[in-house]
Design a protein around this nucleic acid. Structure first.
Lengths: 119, 119, 119, 119
DNA sequence: GTGGTCTAGACCACG
DNA sequence: GTGGTCTAGACCACA
């Protein structure tokens, strides 16, 4: 499993890790039941404090992406937790808004933005 | 001039402002010589402290994007190199990729993602 | 606001704090909108590390009990978040099971357990 | 003999076991001289490591609740002082209070709490 | 060796 | 002064 943390990125490391693993799970790169590296292993690889990685894993667990069993490690949850349709829609709308803002700042129209999505 | 600050975004407000204004200048949306809103005006609009916006403007000046003259306000510096169309496209593509990843994590199709943009 | 942490209790301090504050909010002892002591203040009073209290507050926020605004402190959320009826029921059942186990270990019947509730 | 271990409980398993057995002895549910299940038996039933249960038994012996003799197993020690009815009642009341608080946090009435007990 | 927790102290962004 | 984050290192419970 490949995770990369960019110290120059203003997003805190624990969020970079969380986001990357969430994406790998959502896209199927990490299959349900598969093992994540141990907290200490990943912390060592990335040159981060153990607590930092632990926080990422803890949040992944509270969001239902993984299951942590003390002393047996962390595995990908069998199936994605259900989110209410309203919440899903709210998040999608928020992401769409962020994307549109970027596009507008770049001087692009909404159609340019959509075209970029298709490619 | 439209600037938006997302408090939930881990990027600090002063950087969000700086980045957006830099981009508008680089893409030509803000022409050389045109006036930026006053620090107090923008701070009021965004619900931020004056200091926060002042920091954005100070950094914009340090980087040569704007010129601040006491009593005459802040204007866009003359002849900043414009961003190449290729660079603009690259940034749009990157933003589109980020958006699509989020949509996929939410279990949405590309068509859902496009529909969300239109609303 | 009075919070007490018992170091001899196997429940970790951050959970003791969280539970006590949740209860004060649920019972109305802490009114919506009222301020909680700052993280540093409470940590000092209890003789705990700042991070420990911060974790309690962070969990209170993710559970919807309080609202934290950076640089303006932590306040009690205006209204308790809605929990799905199924989840509420699940938690009640779990607590009932724990209670019944204790009663049984003490050699009491279910009727004794119910009688104790009424007093 | 019924022992239950809740993995979600922050109290470590070996303490949950010890406490439950101590209470059963103190309340007379387990009579002096009666046999406790073997360490391996109980560990198997609870899905725990043998070491975990062994630690509970070791502490029970240190505290004088049981006597362990090689090849004859573990038996309840003779003439442990029984818990007074007042103490038993006090513990039940305490557990009832804890349960009621949880129910109240969930927004349930005392009648809901009692109904949950019956199911 | 695994995750859980705590401490003590530091720097950052911001009002 | 407020919360957010990170580090470095420690001890615990357990398989």
């Amino acid at each position: 499993m490949i995770v990369e943390v960019d110290a120059a990125n203003p997003t805190p490391p624990y969020e970079q890790i969380r986001t990357q693993i969430e994406t790998m799970i959502a896209t199927g790169v990490l299959a349900p039941g598969s093992h994540l590296p141990s907290i200490r292993q990943l912390a060592g690889d990335l040159g981060l404090a153990v607590n930092t990685v632990a926080r990422s894993y803890r949040e992944l667990e509270t969001h239902g992406f993984v299951i942590t069993r003390v002393r047996s490690g962390t595995t990908v949850a069998p199936r994605r937790p259900t989110m209410t349709p309203a919440e899903t829609q709210r998040r999608l709308t928020e992401a769409a808004k962020t994307y549109l803002t970027t596009a507008r700042v770049l001087g692009m129209s909404i159609d340019d933005a959509i075209a970029a999505l298709r490619s």
